[in-house]
Design a protein around this nucleic acid. Sequence first.
DNA 1: CGCCGACCATACATGCTGTCTGGTCACCGT
DNA 2: ACGGTGACCAGACAGCATGTATGGTCGGCG
Lengths: 207, 207
Amino acid sequence: MARRDENQPSGAELRVRILDAARELLKERSFDALSVAEIITAAGVSRASFYFYFASKQAVLAELVRRAVGAGHEAAEPWVQASAGPRETLRAGIEGGADLWLSNAAVLRAIVESWGSDPQLRELWLALMGTFTDATIGRIEADRAADPAMAARLEGVDVPALAATLTWTGERLYYLAACGVPPFDDRKVLVDTLMHLWLSALYAMDS
Amino acid sequence: MARRDENQPSGAELRVRILDAARELLKERSFDALSVAEIITAAGVSRASFYFYFASKQAVLAELVRRAVGAGHEAAEPWVQASAGPRETLRAGIEGGADLWLSNAAVLRAIVESWGSDPQLRELWLALMGTFTDATIGRIEADRAADPAMAARLEGVDVPALAATLTWTGERLYYLAACGVPPFDDRKVLVDTLMHLWLSALYAMDS
DNA sequence: CGCCGACCATACATGCTGTCTGGTCACCGT
DNA sequence: ACGGTGACCAGACAGCATGTATGGTCGGCG
C-alpha cells in the first residue's frame, strides 16, 4: 500500500497532529502511563491512522526527541568550535543545555526514563550522548594542543572516558532538574555546579 | 492438590522464594518486561500468595533493593569516617560501589530504570542517594576543616550540591557499566575516571 | 464515472494486573 | 477427636493495554 513516509508539509498532517498531541500529553502523564488511546483521542485521529504513521508509541517518542534535540544541537556549537576561552564557551554550552531541557522537559524526561527498556530508544539516546561526547573530546583535544599546562594535567587521563562522564553527568543533572529534585531544580545551582565540575576536571580552575 | 512442602517453620518462606525468583529473573529480563505470572511460576507460588506478601511487583523490587544496598552500606563506611587520607579512602569507596553494583547489577539496574515511574521506588531511590550525598557532605566538611587549602578552594562552592552531583554521577556510571555501555564496562576505566572527577572537584589533585 | 488512497469505526486476539471465590491442608487448643 | 484458623492453592474474573484485521466513507484524479 501507499508509503509516504516523508511527505511535504501539506501531506501528512495527521502525523503532526499525533506528535503534537503526544508532546502535550507528556507534560501531564509519564510516558509509560500514557496510552495510545489517549494520544489518538487528543489528536482526534483513529487508531488505524496512528498505526499507519507510527509503529508504536515508542516511535512517536523517538521522533519527538529527534526534533527537540535537532533544534538544540546548534546550541552546543560554540563549545565545539574553540573560538573563545574555555570558561565563556563552557558556560554558554551549559546554559544552552539547560535551555534545551527547559523547553523540552517532558519529552527528554520521557526518553531518559524509557531508553532502558526499548531498543530503538536506547540506540537513539546512546547515539545522542555519543555525539555530545565526541564534541567534548574534540574541544578537549584542541585545548590540550594549545595549552601545555593542560596537556600536562591530562597526562595519563582517558580523555574519551572523561568526556563521556561529563556528558552523562549533564544528562543526569538536567534530568533531575526536570524532575524537580533538589538542589538541581534551582537553575543557578545546577549551572554553577556543572561549571565547577567541568572546570576542575579539565582545566583545574576554580569556578 | 495443595501441599506445603515439608519445610521447617520458616515463617514466611514463600516471601523469600518470591524474592529469590524475582532476583534471578531480573538477570534475564528487564523489570518492566517481567510479569507477575513469570515470577510466581519460577517461585512455585500461587498468584494469591504473591499478592498476600506483596502489593505489586514494584514492592518486590523495593525489597530487593533494600536488601542489596543494606549489605553494601558498610562498604562506604570507611569513606565517611575520615580515618585515612582522602585518596585511599576515596578509592576504597569507589571500588566498594563498583563491587556493590557488580554483585547486584540486575536489581540496581531495575530500580534505576523504574524509579521514574513509580512513587514508591522513587522515594526509596532518592532517599538512598540522599544518604550517600549526606555521607559525602560530612566527609567534605571534615576535610575542609582540617585543610585550609581545600577550604580556600571550596570557597563559594555549594558543597551539598557538589556532593549530590558526585553521588549521582556515580549512580549513572555504575549503571552504564552494568548495562555494558562503553567505555564504562571496563572497570579500571570506570574507577579511574571517577577518581579523577572526585579528586579534581574536591581536592584539585591529579589522578 | 469509477478507482484508489486517506481516513474512520469497530472488533478482535492477546497479554498483563489485581481481586475474588472456593477449596485443601496442617496445626492447635479444648 | 473435633472444630477453628491460618497458610496456601487453582482458577475465574474485570479492566485495560497493545497491535492487527475488517469493512466502510469520502474526495480527488485519470
